[in-house]
Nucleic acid binder design. Structure first.
Lengths: 230, 230
DNA sequence: GTCTATAGCTTGATAGAC
DNA sequence: GTCTATCAAGCTATAGAC
């Protein structure tokens, strides 16, 4: 798996070179992906039927099987469509960190390399926000179909863990993995947008205020990593 | 809702005073709760059928409706059965924190008041470990049925947020809520036990080593809270 | 490729005997 | 309360006309 800037090709499920999938068909495909993304994020894989998706996408029941090979194939394409775009941004930021700079700044940059690409996308479109909620949901899952998310994000995890080893070489393997694990958990908590903050504060603080919550998250995680390492 | 030590009554769904539900029936009830807990944690509410549960519990299909009023009632009872036990332990620890002690120790005690009760239970039985994985999973959810978890844990959240205001009075409302939110996220990450650490380390580090991961988590969160507040 | 119709199965819930 | 048998609805996937 490569993550060079140009490596995020539009999703193509089959290996045969389809010459041109017809613009109208392509639009229908995107509508199905968008609708599935939203519904999977809201109700989970098993909480959504192919009928729900095709009806709300204004499509036909059989389209999911014709275009994606079934419900599971549709789910996989939903995940894959946006994963690479995030990861390219992350690696660009990770590579820009200077190992020579002071530890607090470097660790903060390490956190932001992971999370700022999420924040940018969250501000970009509602589709991205649905995607981030879906990813957050999958991060607390371990069963069957949904584990393919791990395959999409394992290379990211390994590079971030390795990079943390460069910044703070005295951390042991468990500390580095825990640091990454807790960073992911906090980042997902920001973008899962589950109204928890609203409920607890009578809507004085909102889960949907990603910018403010993200800023606090970066401070929290950076200090957490440094403190755990000390 | 009260959380005095004796307030965790065995789960009784109806409001009428059932005199004695027969010991054999009670055992069957517990077996259904245990099995449902395990399967819901593994596959989610929608990923499990009533048939799955009753078959694996050695029970009859109709028992779920007869004893719990349906699948949803069973789910609610699974959640409620153990929630109060955790929260009683938490409040006992929270009340034992001396506001006079130095900040780092007090904040660490605040984190442990939340998380040590989870650790103790995780070491107690497999049933508890299933329960914790279920709770972790629900923490990244916001749809319908599953939101009742929020009702179970809102009083806890409010008291922890308020107590943090006593310890670090200069934090604003958003910072206190974010601190609690990130603590929950990190604690859930420890107990979700999703093999993520094992995968990334070739099993050199294990998600199931709750004690070691919890210890790092407490350090991480305590420093994160203090750092965010600074 | 597009689309209708439907097969074949599983779902949650219940009726009704005991 | 316990238990069997069954219902009506919904499910994913596909066959086959165009």
């Amino acid at each position: 798996m490569s993550f060079s800037p140009g490596s995020c090709s539009p999703v193509v499920s089959d290996t045969t070179a389809t010459p041109s999938p017809s613009p109208k068909a392509q639009a229908a495909r995107e509508r199905l992906l968008d609708t599935a993304e939203r519904l999977f994020a809201e109700h989970g894989f098993n909480g959504v039927s192919v009928r729900d998706i095709t009806q709300q996408a204004g499509s036909r029941l059989a389209d999911v099987n014709d275009h994606f090979g079934g419900k599971e194939g549709l789910f996989k394409d939903v995940i894959a469509r946006r994963a690479c775009l995030i990861n390219v941004d992350r690696f660009a930021r990770l590579d820009a960190i200077l190992v020579g700079q002071p530890k607090p700044e470097a660790v903060r940059a390490w956190v932001e390399a992971f999370s700022v690409p999420l924040l940018m996308r969250a501000q970009e479109s509602e589709g991205w926000r649905h995607y981030l909620r879906l990813i957050a949901r999958l991060s607390t899952t371990r069963s069957g179909v949904l584990m393919l998310v791990a395959d999409q994000f394992n290379p990211v995890a390994l590079r971030f863990v390795a990079h943390l080893g460069l910044l703070l070489p005295h951390m042991d393997a468990r500390q580095r993995l825990n640091a990454y694990q807790f960073m992911v958990a906090c980042a997902m908590a920001v973008f899962v947008d589950n109204f928890r903050l609203d409920t607890l504060s009578d809507s004085a603080v909102r889960s949907s205020d990603f910018e403010a919550n993200h800023a606090n998250m970066v401070r929290f995680v950076a200090h957490g990593v440094l403190g755990m390492a000390a």
